[in-house]
């Protein structure tokens, strides 16, 4: 059970890191061609640490690559937000901000984890996502309060993505077990910090927080949108064509 709670976050980080890596060589300016991989590498690094720990706890002989490359759509436990397509720079930055604004207080709280490994990962990851908030927040402000076109694109991004933010605060049965054991913090408790950060940035960005949005969820139960299957088909193609091979 405990390993499944770690898999949820590991999958979040891997899928979002993968999404960011799709920008590689295609960013709006060269400086962003360096900034985006920095965030992607942070996330992939955290995913690797969590997969390794999840594998140990599961105790079925699965390592990071078994978990990343040999599970299918229904077995992936990431939230729906992170699998949303990149679309444009507005959506990519907002998706990242929404996620980082949740993970920053989450990792800060997780540094009190009863699990030694999670404790170690949390300390490092909290600093990483704090920078992600800073970087994506500045971009959201510039795009929200930039030109007519950028403001329209930012508003569209909010409309497209806000409905996936509710799931961040939901604890699955696996997560609740981990929370009870003091391994992970209670997700709902991140709400205050998240609201404050997003509120501040939205004010500066002249963006309006949608009200009464229907919140989608299901990722923690392996009930995804159609995009995840394509991400995995691409990501896992080489590894699955050569089962058992070492790379």
């Amino acid at each position: 059970m405990m390993h499944e709670a770690l898999l949820e976050i590991a999958d979040d980080c891997l899928v979002l890191g993968h999404r960011l890596s799709e920008w590689c060589g295609h960013a709006p300016m060269l400086e962003e061609d360096l900034a985006l991989p920095n965030m992607a590498l942070d996330l992939i690094g955290v995913a690797r640490g969590l997969y390794a720990r999840a594998g140990e706890l599961e105790d079925a002989g699965r390592g990071e690559d078994d978990l990343a490359y040999f599970r299918g759509e229904r077995e992936f436990r990431n939230c729906l937000l992170v699998e949303r397509p990149n679309e444009d720079f507005a959506q990519t930055m907002l998706r990242q901000l929404y996620f980082a604004a949740f993970m920053e207080p989450f990792w800060r709280a997780a540094s009190a984890s009863s699990d030694e490994v999670v404790h170690g990962i949390a300390g490092k990851a909290a600093k990483e996502v704090a920078y992600h908030i800073r970087h994506t927040g500045e971009w959201v402000i510039r795009m929200g309060d930039g030109t007519v076109e950028s403001a329209a694109r930012m508003a569209r991004a909010v409309d497209a993505l806000h409905r996936y933010t509710g799931e961040l605060f939901e604890s699955s049965p696996a997560a609740r077990a981990a929370e009870a054991a003091g391994v992970l913090p209670v997700r709902e408790e991140m709400r205050g910090d998240w609201d404050r950060v997003i509120g501040m940035i939205f004010t500066e960005a002249r963006l309006v927080l949608p009200e009464d949005t229907h919140m989608h969820s299901g990722g923690r139960a392996g009930l995804h949108g159609e995009d995840l299957g394509h991400i995995l088909a691409e990501m896992q193609s080489v590894a699955r064509a050569h089962p058992g091979a070492v790379w």
Binding site: L14, R48, Y69
Partner: peptide, 8 residues
């Protein structure tokens, strides 16, 4: 990048 066969 999106198809690299291991996380490393």
């Amino acid at each position: 990048v999106t198809r690299a066969p291991s996380l490393r």
